[in-house]
Amino acid sequence: MYPFTFTTARDTRAALEAGRNGGRYIAGGTTLVDLMRETVERPGTLVDISPLPLRFVTVTARGGVRIGALVTMTDAAAHPAIRRLYPVVSAALELSASAQLRNMATIGGNIMQRTRCTYFRDVTAACNKRDPGSGCAAIGGFNRTHAILGTSDACVATHPSDLAVALTALDAKVRLAGSSGTRSVAIADFLLLPGATPDREQALRPGELITAVDIPAHPRPLRSGYLKVRDRQSYEFALAAAAVALHSSGGVIRTAKVAAGGVGTVPWRLSAVERHLIGRRPSTRLWSSAAELAAEGAKPLTHNRFKIELLQRTVERELRIVGGTA
């Protein structure tokens, strides 16, 4: 780890000031300290944002939920309103990392977490994300866990967050504060495709601070859930994951929100699956015909062709769990 100076921001203004001067925010530290120890990250100044008043969860009468950026994964997952309204969010959180890490890690840090690509973590390997222009060791290397959707010639790393997959399905927005005021960005626009610049991962301006995540009120009540498939049963990142939220009335699906994790360079919204579901009656056949569309556009690498079928089956299973077969 390289030496760094350390300051604690007492309020949002002080944090933004320090951020503007090049300071790096630290929340739970579970991504940042790890990557600093690997010398992947080399910030000169850390700005501890833990005193900021960003530990709230507020619920609007219509069912919108705002989660403060510093709420821990544990507390967000346990929140009664989140469990009741959006089980897909609490499930995605509780299937992430470990109880210890969830006690430390925050909602803001979670969506900012960086890829687990092993070449990215190995400073001796070529990696365009860590060292732009150096190449990508994963494309010709061992890429079993890498992405099949949203890849580019420059980078094929998956986005590792489970929470972000659930938030993508629910059309969540990220609230940001900067020196020129606050703004709100859809999570789908916040997390960037690698394209030719995989080092740019979020639509965050220099010094900007995430203050909260907003789950919008959904006009119809949703049944939702999250399924995560991995190499071991727990404490592991997804090989494939599905976030599903459905509303049916009169025996017909009216709302379908489906996103996939573990397969894309960003959480992957499955619009073709959603379109196929809407207006149809739940049935075992429907789940499987919809899930067949899940891997549309997939480009497998040398070692991850299996993810195509795994993704389809994961989506099918979660559609069946959430939608039933009435």
Binding site: F6, I26, T30, V33, D34, R37, D48, A99, N103
Partner: peptide
């Protein structure tokens, strides 16, 4: 030393955390 094994688990203010990813200065 990377948050991945739990051998360093301690309680901080009553909550279990991994001490390897906890900066003492905080």
């Amino acid at each position: 030393n990377a948050g991945a094994c739990g051998a360093c688990t301690v309680l901080v203010d009553g909550r279990r955390v991994v001490s390897c990813l906890t900066l003492a200065v905080r």
